[in-house]
Design a protein around this nucleic acid. Structure first.
Length: 547
DNA sequence: CGATCCGGCGCC
DNA sequence: AAAGGGCGCCGGATCG
């Protein structure tokens, strides 16, 4: 069933029955390309894509419900359409289904689900009512125009996520496998580490004089080092680097190769790469800041060294675009720090910052900026932030304020209104109950950690606002390029970076559209700001050649 | 035994 | 004195 709605969410005309979902959406999309209101795009849209149906716009009710609940500090409440309906009508609120539904016996959770959570009401009517109520609640936020943008961007992001999952990132399994053999030695029988790892492991054990040593066990490593008279705080690579012992360089090499073997080795290849495409499952809104997460495949942690295997189809290229120095630029826009915004006009913001406030020392300028964004105070970071503050007080004060709000129990929002989750129960700021005496000092540390979180949230989440707006702008713009059957396709998105796969002859046009989309996203999200958000763009055959 | 936590490290 | 945000994934260690 479908129901046409007016702009303010009221039904217009009668519901319409269809033979099936694909026919309904396909024909209405061709006729009028409406903004689809549906429960959850990630449940519905992949099926449509599989049947060859694309849609231009949607309002994702579940994602919107999550944003609206977060806005009023009710993080974690069920966000399904039936749950929203229950809150609206005062009924019992059904719990959300677990994200990873396992094929196991019924659990207590299942038993608690009412047989009909809508109490016999027509599901279409429920959807219409919940949507209308969402529009009303959006109108009651402090900045409804921005929140509307947030909802539109979040919904468009879900469409993009499904489309990217459908397209997949071009991936050459043969190249990847050859790369692994070159780095690790030939693949061994199941369960046996490849030759180079085995050899390194033996040499490490020898160097430490402990033949049975297993280098991927931190506990064993600590013991082995203790036996040769070296007390390690941990076995992290940056700790090991401080130590002068012949086992250390071997260990560092082992760690890097072992990481590639376990995270991006042959097992990863056979699980995640099929028919020349890497298809991760993106989870829009999977991170509280609005960044995406993935389920399996680790798409957002593709090791630089295996990007060699991401290769465009013959005659096609990967147009790789990343928003360099995005977070300081976003901070400039958020804080209205025009001086910082202007520092970004030269292209290299850190260079300009260095010349302005750090006597030309770019590394220190970068550390100072990142320390302000993350709340780092150790070493000389505190002094560098202070130096930054002297020249860019508005920017630094903006994040300091966010930190204070967090430390004293408040919530902060992104520019478009995405709200951070409340502190967990372990956190004590604003609590009426005094902590037991022995935990007081610890609660101070927790509050400061909370401050670092809210400090970073305002910037990271606003950067995510911008990135989603970029995706939302880019999606429709790409459909006009190339020829039917060979359109450019969005194939990858990672926080501040997108990859478009297109015919080589379309690369220039795609590049232009990317640049326009970045500028449009900046204007739409932040309005009148001197801040710029340039993309570094490279059209390459191989992802590894983009940087 | 599986489920969960933890150390470690990859990406941004 | 020290004080770096957000994730996912791996293997090992530990819990129930």
């Amino acid at each position: 069933m479908t129901q046409e709605l007016t702009e303010d969410g009221r039904p217009s005309g009668e519901p319409r029955a269809w033979a099936d979902l694909v026919t309904a959406v396909g024909s209405l999309e061709r006729a009028s390309a409406p903004r689809w209101v549906w429960a959850h795009g990630m449940d519905i849209y992949p099926r449509l894509l599989a049947a060859g149906v694309r849609v231009e716009r949607c309002h994702d009710v579940e994602l919107t419900e999550t944003l609206l609940l977060g806005y009023i500090g009710r993080w974690g409440e069920p966000r399904s359409v039936p749950a929203a309906w229950a809150r609206l009508t005062g009924g019992p609120v059904p719990a959300d289904k677990p994200i990873r539904a396992k094929e196991t016996q019924p659990t207590l959770f299942d038993a608690e689900q009412p047989a009909d959570p809508l109490g016999g009401v027509d599901p279409l009517k429920v959807l219409v009512a919940v949507h209308a109520d969402q529009l009303r609640r959006i109108g009651e936020t402090a900045a409804p125009g921005r929140f509307r943008l947030l909802v539109a961007a979040e919904s468009a992001g879900a469409l993009a996520a499904a489309e990217m999952g459908h397209a997949g990132l071009p991936w050459r399994a043969d190249v990847h496998s050859a790369l692994l053999t070159e780095m690790l030695g030939p693949r061994q029988a199941y369960g046996l580490p490849p030759r180079k790892l085995g050899e390194l492991s033996e040499r490490i054990a020898e160097a430490l004089g402990d033949r049975k040593m297993h280098p991927d066990s931190p506990a064993e490593l600590l013991k082995a080092f203790a036996k040769v008279g070296i007390q390690l705080r941990s076995t992290r690579s940056w700790v090991l680097k401080e130590v002068d012992h012949p086992a250390v360089p071997l260990l560092l090499e082992y760690k890097e190769l072992y990481r590639i073997y376990t995270a991006h080795g042959w097992a990863w290849l056979s699980s995640w790469v099929h028919d020349g495409r890497f298809r991760p499952e993106y989870v829009p809104g999977g991170v509280v800041s609005g960044r995406w997460a993935t389920r399996g495949g680790g798409a957002l942690q593709i090791h630089k060294r295996v990007r060699r295997a991401a290769i465009a189809d013959p005659g096609w290229v990967l147009v790789v675009a990343d928003a360099g120095q995005l977070e300081p630029r976003v901070l400039a826009a958020l804080a209205g720090d025009d001086k910082l915004a202007l520092a970004g006009h030269s292209g290299d913001l850190y260079r300009a910052l260095a010349d302005e406030a750090f006597g030309g020392d770019r590394p220190r300028a970068k550390i100072g900026m990142l320390a302000a964004l993350y709340g780092q105070t150790s070493g000389e970071a505190g002094a560098l932030v202070a130096a930054l503050r002297r020249k860019f007080p508005r920017a630094v004060d903006y994040v300091e304020k966010a930190a204070q709000i967090g430390e004293s129990g408040g919530l902060v929002r992104s520019w478009l209104g995405r709200t951070c989750p409340p502190a967990t129960s372990g956190w004590t700021g604003g609590s009426l109950d005094p902590e037991p005496v022995e935990e007081v000092s610890d609660s101070g540390a927790r509050n400061r950690a909370r401050g670092r979180f809210t400090r970073n949230f305002v910037v990271q989440a606003s950067a995510a606002d911008w990135a989603l707006a970029l995706l939302a702008t880019l999606r429709p713009a790409l459909t006009g390029i190339g020829v039917e059957g060979a359109r450019p396709e969005l194939v990858f998105f990672q926080h501040d970076e997108v990859i478009v796969h297109c015919r080589a002859e379309d690369a220039a046009e795609v590049t232009a559209v990317l640049e326009q989309s970045a500028a449009t996203a900046g204007r739409v999200v932040f309005g009148d700001t001197p801040a710029r958000f340039p993309l570094d763009i490279a059209a390459v055959e191989c992802y590894a050649d983009a940087k």
